[in-house]
Amino acid sequence: MSSEQKPFVTDDTQVQTETRDARMAGADDRFNSKLREAFGSSPFILTKFDKFMNWVRGSSMFMLQFGIACCSIEMMHTYAIKHDLDRFAAGVPRASPRQADVIIVPGTIVSKFAPRMKRVYDQMPEPKFVVGMGSCTISGGPFQEGYNVIKGAEEVIPVDIHIPGCPPRPEALIYGIAKLQERIANGESSPVTVKPYELEQFGDLERDEIVDKLAAQIDEDDLVMRYNWADSP
C-alpha cells in the first residue's frame, strides 16, 4: 500500500485541494472509507495477483438460480427487498449453471433428483462453490428416515458452507454467504470429501442382484447413480 518505493508518485504537496483535505480529514463522510485510507494519497496499491483474484472472486459472486424445496422460499426472500443479498456482492441469480460461481442447494435431495443435481453442478465452470442451505442438505433433515431421501448434499457434491436451520432465516443465509466470501478471499478451498454417490456408467457397476435385475432395462453406457442405502449415515 505504501507509495514510498515507487518512482512515479505525484508529489502530494502539489495537489493539495480542499476536497483532498476533507477526504483525508474525514470531514465529509462520503470519502472516509477504508479503501480511501488504504490508497492514501496514491492511486496505486501493491498486492499479490492471486490474492487480488481471490478478493475479486469473493466480491463478485454469481449465484445459480436453483430452487428445490422449502429453503428456496427463504432464498427468494434473501434475494428480494429487505434482505437484499445484492448488498454483499452476491445477488445476481443466474438461470444457467454455465454462468454461475456459487450453487446454493436449498432443499431435500431425493433419489430421482440427485443425478440431475450432480449434472447441474458439473456444468458450472471452475472455480465453483457450494452452499448447503438447511438441515436437509446436512443430513436429510426431518426426512432423514425416508426411503427416497439422500442423507445430505455431501453424498453427491462437495459442500463449502453448511447453514443449519429448517429453513434458515435469510439473515442466516447471508451470514453463511459472508463466511463463504471470507473463505474465498482468504484463498481457502473446500475440503475434498469422498462422495459415495457418483454418476457412473451402468456397465461399470459391480454386478449383483439388483444390477442383474435391471440389466434388461438399462444400457451398458447409460449413466446411473447407485444408492447403497444400508451404508448411509
Partner: peptide
C-alpha cells in the same frame, strides 16, 4: 420414484436397506 426403482415402498414387506439405482 425413478422408473428403475425396485419394490413398492409403502407395501408391508418393503426393505428400505436394499440398494437402488437411478438413471440419468
Amino acid at each position: 420414484l425413478p422408473e428403475t426403482w425396485q419394490g413398492h415402498p409403502l407395501g408391508l414387506d418393503y426393505d428400505q436397506e436394499r440398494p437402488q439405482i437411478a438413471t440419468l
